[in-house]
Design a binder for these strands. Structure first.
Lengths: 156, 156
DNA sequence: CACAGATCGTTTAGTAGGTTAACAATTATC
DNA sequence: GATAATTGTTAACCTACTAAACGATCTGTG
């Protein structure tokens, strides 16, 4: 649409006609905010934040990763991971274990309570997503995750 | 899966089997980061940020919104919008216009160069999305936006 | 009409979630 | 054995918000 054409029309455009509404990036951000708000409400002030939960998942499911490995898998910088690992260690959910073969690195080993906390958090998060996404049937939800993974793959 | 079952298996799990990978929230965030990184690269250091562009869209397409209106439509607090409107005004893309009927409010009126900047940015952004999302056909892309809108609707 | 209450834009202070650059310690490569 | 690369870490910085409070202004009720 040209500026002239716009001025020839009524002043206010219908929201659903705005180009903004067709942009994937804009809808992605808005949808993420909706989901994240409920996540925070469900997990509470002292619960695991999304990024800490995702780090804990890797530590539990792939024990003895290094911090550099983990940062790569999470798609963040090594320096940014330090605070996350600090929090998980302060909560008693993992230990930084020295590796004799390479004294630069410290393997991330989950504790018993780390594994339990992971499983408890995962149950809460699954409930949260099931409740939030009840308007999507199984096929739609699978399709959504599939499409999002395709976008993720570009960034590699 | 229980902890006992996990310990009975090999140490490291396949990434694609992790519950994390099936979560909508996690995939939403990761996909958003991928898209946003390219957005920043395309728009450059002095380009409009996503939030400023979305605000400009509303100002251009629905002239004379108030800041409270705009904040509601963007899903952010009034206080958070001030800096965004400040930037758009500093760039000369809009004016805060006094409204005689209600001296509390200032209508947001786009300028000529604001409209031009909007159209130029939109063209760049459409290019960016077309390039990033080339692996999705038209139907998939439409379906993705449709599903994201459904999630957005919960938060209202 | 008066006035209590809501609303508007704004400032200030705080938070979450990162990045970049530099560093010492250590390991790998030539 | 010198040079380069990697690891975890700190420090300083940035973006994108929120929450609370403010004066100015408007609205609804008695």
């Amino acid at each position: 649409m040209t500026r002239t054409q716009r001025k020839a029309r009524a002043d206010a455009m219908d929201v659903s006609e705005m180009a903004l509404e067709t942009l994937v990036g804009y809808n992605l951000k808005r949808a993420y905010v909706v989901l994240q708000n409920d996540y925070r409400a469900v997990m509470g002030d002292h619960g695991l934040s999304p990024r800490v939960f995702s780090a804990l998942t890797f530590v539990v499911e792939m024990p003895n990763l290094t911090q550099s490995d983990l940062a790569r898998r999470l798609g963040i910088e090594r320096s940014g991971l330090v605070a996350i690992v600090d929090e998980l260690e302060a909560r008693g959910y993992l230990n930084r274990v020295a590796v004799p073969q390479d004294r630069r690195i410290q393997a991330l080993a989950p504790t018993e309570s780390g594994v339990q906390a992971y499983e408890a958090a995962l149950a809460l998060i699954n409930e949260h997503e099931d409740r939030m996404l009840h308007m999507l049937n199984a096929e739609e939800r699978e399709q959504l995750v599939h499409l999002l993974k395709k976008i993720r793959e570009i960034g590699e």
